[in-house]
Simulated scan of single mutants.
Amino acid sequence: MTKLLHIDSSVLGPHSVSRRLSAAIVDRLRHTTPGLEIAYRDLTAAPLAHLSGTHLAAAQGNLPSDPLLQQELAAGQAVLEEFLAADILVLGAPMYNFSIPSQLKAWIDRILIAGKTFRYTAQGPQGLAGNKRVIVALSRGGYYGQGTPTAALEHLESYLRGIFGFIGVTALEFIAADGIQVGPEHREKALANALEAVSQLQAA
Rank of each mutant, 00 (worst) to 15 (best):
P14S: 10
H15M: 15
H15E: 13
H15T: 12
S16N: 07
V17A: 08
V17Q: 04
S18N: 14
S18V: 03
R19Y: 06
R20K: 15
A23C: 01
V26K: 00
V26S: 02
R30G: 11
R30A: 15
R30H: 09
H31A: 10
T32R: 07
P34N: 06
G35D: 06
E37L: 12
A39R: 10
R41W: 07
R41P: 03
A45I: 08
A46H: 03
A49E: 13
G53N: 06
H55R: 04
A57K: 02
Q60R: 15
G61W: 08
P64H: 03
D66K: 00
D66W: 00
P67V: 03
P67Y: 08
Q70P: 10
Q71G: 02
Q77V: 00
A78I: 05
A78Y: 02
V79R: 05
L80H: 00
E81L: 14
E81D: 15
F83N: 04
F83M: 03
L84W: 04
L84D: 13
A85K: 04
V90E: 03
A93V: 14
M95Y: 07
N97Y: 10
N97V: 13
F98T: 07
I100Q: 05
S102V: 10
I108W: 14
I113C: 08
K116R: 15
Y120E: 06
A122P: 03
Q123R: 09
G124A: 05
L128E: 15
G130N: 07
G130K: 11
